[in-house]
Write a protein that binds this DNA or RNA. Structure first.
Length: 280
DNA sequence: ATATTCCCCTGGAAGC
DNA sequence: TGCTTCCAGGGGAATA
């Protein structure tokens, strides 16, 4: 479900709603990946005050008052809600934290690809194994055309699936990958090592612009994305190619095509994005 | 080392 | 109506 803008939107909401809250209990209804058993998670969380909530890549970090914390991942279908506690588990509710002020913080996840990880100390919230190998954030100054060209030297893999690799750069998922390549006019099938410095410059600009716009819109609402308060992202209305197979390209009118790369759908305009394949 | 595939799991939409 | 097939935003492991 969530790419960077969705996770950012949710992390900001959690920060707003949970900062200062004290956890009194935890219920685990259906274990997510790596989620400890209910008794262990309860022992870990009970009595803890939440200092802050932040985002790194597509992970959400919840920092407690005793230098421990949680790392949460939404997988494909994760979502949260925070409401007065009626003590009634809802459909697809996997984990629930009860708060001292009478609220209940729920973690839903239909497909159960989400994760709940424990961090035993403060450094682990920044250096947990799942965070260790991650590439730079999309808005980091460290993310430059030179860095990308160096990392991808010799990589003949198609550009589009490469952009999904979180150890190269983080936060770009399938939707914004397609949208950014369209905006930059680059062929999703071109070898990653053939992207020129000028093309990287353009693509980086488009990735940042699209992520910025999507964050401002509160994310992209596709099927089951919801913010903590239940509101839907509005960016879906701005999607140019994703999910638009057969529709006319907004730029040239050629029908948008869909193809499969690395088992995922790619949407692109075969005319606007077809000029970069080098013959070797 | 790099590249492709397969799997985790559930549900909605489309096709017959 | 009911059954089958395909598809889905992520990520990691297994396989060539």
């Amino acid at each position: 479900m969530p790419e960077l803008p969705e996770v950012e939107t949710i992390a900001r909401s959690l920060q707003r709603h949970l900062q200062g809250a004290v956890i009194t209990g935890v219920a685990v209804f259906d274990k997510l990946r790596d989620c400890p058993a209910c008794t262990d998670l309860t022992a870990f969380c009970a009595g803890r005050k939440i200092l802050n909530v932040s985002r790194r890549a597509k992970y959400i970090r919840v920092r407690f008052d005793n230098d421990t914390g949680l790392i949460l991942h939404l997988g494909m279908t994760g979502a949260f809600s925070i409401t007065p506690d009626d003590n009634q588990p809802q459909r697809h509710e996997r984990v629930a934290w009860t708060l001292l002020d009478g609220r209940r913080w729920r973690f839903f996840d239909i497909r159960k690809f989400g994760r709940v990880l424990l961090c035993q100390d403060n450094p682990e919230l920044d250096n947990h194994p799942v965070l260790h190998a991650l590439g730079p954030e999309p808005f980091s100054p460290a993310l430059t055309p030179a860095y990308l060209q160096k990392r991808l030297a010799g990589r003949r893999s198609p550009l589009k699936p490469v952009l999904l690799e979180q150890d190269l750069l983080v936060g770009v998922g399938n939707i914004y990958d397609c949208e950014a390549l369209f905006a930059a006019g680059l062929d999703p099938r071109m070898p990653a090592c053939d992207v020129t410095s000028a093309q990287w410059k353009c693509l980086l600009k488009e990735i940042r612009a699209i992520l910025t716009k999507a964050i401002e819109a509160g994310g992209t609402h596709i099927s089951d994305f919801r913010d903590v308060d239940g509101s839907e992202g509005k960016f879906v209305q701005q999607l140019q190619v994703y999910g638009h197979a057969g529709d006319p390209c907004p730029r040239c009118g050629t029908p948008i095509e869909r193809l499969t790369q690395g088992g995922r759908s790619t949407f692109f305009c075969p005319k606007c994005q077809c000029c970069q394949i080098k013959r070797r």
